[in-house]
Computed example of a mutant assay.
Amino acid sequence: MKNLEVENYIESYLKNYKDYKSEWNYEDGCILIGAEALYKASKKNNYLKFILDYLDRRVDENGVILELNPVEYNIDNINSGRVLFTAYDETKNEKYKHAIENIKYLLKIHPRTSEGNFWHKGRYPHQVWLDGLYMAQPFYAIYSNENSDKYGLEDILNQFKNVRKNLFCEDKKLYFHGFDETRTMNWADKVTGKSSNFWARAIGWYAMALVDVIDNIDESLFKNLKDEFIKLYIELMEGIIQYQDQSGLWYQVMTLENKKGNYLETSATLMFAYSLLKGNRLNILDKSYLDKGKKAYEAIIENNLIENNGKLELKNICIMAGLNGLIPFNGDRNGSFEYYISEKIGVDDPKGVGPLFKAYSEIILLEDRGGY
Rank of each mutant, 00 (worst) to 15 (best):
K190H: 10
D348M: 10
E338S: 08
I234W: 12
I345R: 14
S267N: 03
S247K: 06
G310I: 08
A188K: 09
C318T: 12
I214K: 09
L326C: 03
G81V: 00
M320Y: 11
A188H: 10
D131N: 09
L282P: 11
S42D: 03
E11W: 11
D189W: 02
N74F: 13
M271L: 07
K161N: 10
Y39R: 01
E5K: 15
Y17T: 00
A37S: 12
D180K: 02
D215N: 13
E5L: 15
K278P: 04
E343L: 09
K172G: 06
Y73E: 01
P111C: 01
I317H: 07
N147P: 08
M135P: 06
S342F: 15
Y140V: 00
P111A: 04
K21E: 14
N25D: 08
D155M: 14
D131K: 13
L84R: 09
Q242H: 04
D180I: 00
V83M: 01
E265T: 13
N224W: 11
W129F: 03
G122I: 04
A188P: 14
P355M: 01
T86Q: 11
L249Y: 10
R112M: 02
D218Y: 14
Y360K: 01
N303Q: 04
N93I: 05
K223A: 06
M208D: 02
V353P: 09
E367G: 02
K2R: 11
P111E: 04
N258I: 07
K165S: 09
K351H: 07
E343M: 03
A299D: 03
L174A: 03
Y360D: 08
G346R: 15
N316C: 03
F85G: 02
I364V: 13
E67Q: 13
I230Q: 03
G293M: 07
T266M: 02
N16V: 06
N166Y: 15
D349L: 13
K121Y: 11
K44S: 03
A359R: 08
R123C: 12
I75M: 06
E362Q: 12
M135T: 07
K108H: 11
Y151Q: 06
A209E: 00
I156D: 05
L107Q: 08
L232Q: 04
G34H: 06
R183G: 00
L133Q: 14
I203N: 02
K97T: 06
A207S: 14
L256E: 15
F329H: 12
Y274M: 00
N117Q: 05
V213R: 07
A37P: 07
K259M: 15
S267T: 01
N186P: 14
S144C: 02
K292I: 02
W129R: 00
N309W: 15
Y339D: 02
L282V: 10
V6H: 12
A209V: 00
G34T: 02
T184L: 13
I109L: 05
L326P: 01
N283L: 04
L312F: 12
I230G: 02
H98G: 07
D89E: 07
L48K: 14
K190D: 12
I203R: 04
N45V: 03
V6T: 07
E27D: 10
L14K: 12
L210I: 00
S22M: 09
A37W: 12
N197Q: 14
L323D: 00
N224G: 06
G204R: 10
L323N: 01
P125W: 00
G335F: 13
P355R: 05
A296Q: 03
A268I: 08
N8T: 10
V6W: 11
R164I: 06
D218N: 13
K226N: 10
